[in-house]
Amino acid sequence: MNIFRLAGDLSHLLAIILLLIKIWKTRSCAGISGKSQILFAVVYVSRYLDLVTTFISLYNTLMKLVFITSSFATLYLMYVKFKATYDHNHDSFRIEFLLLPCFVLALLINASFTPLEVLWTFSIYLEAVAILPQLFLVSKTGEAESITSHYLFALGSYRALYLLNWIYRYYAEGHYDLIAIFAGAIQTILYCDFFYLYITKVLKGKKLQLPA
């Protein structure tokens, strides 16, 4: 554990908490993509199957449980409790166009061809692109509430901080994982446009509105 890794995990945790707070306080999931949240739930479940096979640390186990539980809690709030506020018409991204290619890629490029390893790899590829329905929704509506922007910033920062963690680990421990690094770089790049808008608009107190 190094400072970048810890900061990344905390940023990830903060993102999830911000999202739950937004939905709970406003009693609404307007502006949030249920498609992205479904993809994140698939990511956590397929990645954390090793919860039942391997014990790494209490921290590791607890964080995995928090990520899985909170992602299902988010889905419950969106699709059951506050279903009426869900932005169904704008959330029209076809997730099979992400799920299928990621699965095929995981079958082709993985560390070893075993069920757990392929599912882990699938989750890494899928996580890289899971935010696309959310970014698509923001681009369709042309704006995002400030708390939604904070959520996206924290969620994007998490993988960017992991990139620093991987650079650090490469030099400090000789540890590297090309699959995670490659996917993490793609994931971070997808947020760049949003990061720019966040820094130039939201941090200056303006609403995140896309140029017409």
């Binding site: 090793d50 790494i56 490029i109 560390a111 994982d177 995670a180």
Partner: peptide
Amino acid sequence: YGSGLPKDEL
């Protein structure tokens, strides 16, 4: 391409 499971990262 990678070191394989188990992974210590999240």
